[in-house]
Design a binder for these strands. Structure first.
Lengths: 206, 206
DNA sequence: GTTTATAACGACACAAGTGTCGTTTTGTTA
DNA sequence: TAACAAAACGACACTTGTGTCGTTATAAAC
């Protein structure tokens, strides 16, 4: 269906493969999916898939990369329409809404799997760190900006507060991946986190 | 080295296999270790290992089980010498010491791996839940007892506070597994958690 | 409409791990 | 010390997943 390139068709096919891959990774997780699963989901031959991605790791990283771009744009957009740093922080934490809900990224579990099983692999560890830093920096910037403006207390080091948010969300994602919905109580726990942040950052209750 | 049983030698051999297995799992993680690795570490043949454990999953569960027994005894011991519920809570959280340190269970990462990669497997998920509940119940009991005695505020539901502790520690374990020591700041983050619990449980600073 | 570069295909060879099972070895018992 | 039950052994057959590569089909260029 495509000899001698055509640029757009190449991009399209790659996008189709990624889309199929995302669905499979969500369904089966990282370790348990094989290239064959993706091939079948995408309706593509072995060679067809390997033409675009050298192996499963490469494929998964491409998936992560794609989704990171999406969320980066979203964050930029939110940075502009922020009315206060506290509000902005809530938006960044809960994605648009300023109120915690029970939604979690359906690919989060597979990502955790990807990084934790690869923790002894040099390449993957470095990549994991990069991603962690990126996620952290979003929170850190908002908090430090809020502290600089005087809206937030600087009793705690901004970076440390940011790390705690990330840690807590990581734990939430982990428990959410393993436990049934009703046990994790994502919403309740998120609300507690918000209460805590109010105290830690000296924000008077809204 | 052992025909027609002898009871003690059987137990001993099993213990030796488990010891070797723990070392390997710590070193390599769950997914990346094979039965062969354990065989070599224990200096035992293939058949010798399979005589005691039906497969890797069975082996790892045996490892977990063994360590759970150890810590259960430790917890019981601590329950008796508790001077206050707050103190007891700290001891349970940080294992004997009432001050957070940067130590983490060296098998924690492999456990996370075990449960997260097996999250789509019925059997393993049930087992994971059981373990989670067990860990949770320790915190829940201490907190609810403290609330009943009036030492702790009951502004937050005790179980929810307990869940938050577990979630936070899970996140910490996860980040610790993936990131280099200096980035996670286990000690600093633990201290923040303690500050938070003081507020949430209405404990005046010691 | 012919040519051509190459995307897509799928059979294949290879590697890694698993669990089994017939054989060997060795405590234990009589 | 002879006989035995079973612990320990390790070769083997099997399964699963991977990445490659020669072949085939086709969109674009002429």
């Amino acid at each position: 269906m495509a000899p001698r390139v055509s640029e757009e068709h190449l991009r399209q096919r790659r996008a189709d493969l990624l889309k199929a891959a995302v669905a499979v990774f969500m369904e089966r997780g990282y370790e348990r999916t094989t290239m064959k699963h993706v091939m079948e989901a995408a309706g593509v031959s072995r060679g067809g898939l390997y033409q675009y991605f050298a192996n499963k790791e490469d494929l998964f990283e491409a998936v992560l990369e794609e989704r990171l771009e999406d969320s980066a744009e979203e964050t930029d957009r939110m940075l502009e329409e922020a009315s206060s740093y506290w509000n902005l922080l809530l938006k960044v934490m809960f994605g648009g809404e300023t109120v915690p809900d029970a939604e979690m990224d359906p690919l989060a579990a597979s990502s955790l799997e990807f990084f934790i099983t690869g923790r002894n692999d040099e390449r993957r560890r470095i990549y994991g760190e990069k991603r962690y830093d990126l996620g952290l920096s979003i929170y850190r910037k908002v908090i430090e900006a809020g502290q600089a403006s005087g809206e937030f207390s600087d009793y705690y080091e901004g970076e440390l507060v940011a790390r705690s948010i990330v840690t807590f969300f990581d734990g939430l994602a982990l428990d959410h991946a393993i436990l049934p919905e009703e046990k994790v109580r994502v919403k309740d726990q998120s609300e507690m986190l918000v209460d805590y942040l109010k105290l830690a950052l000296g924000v008077s209750s809204s």
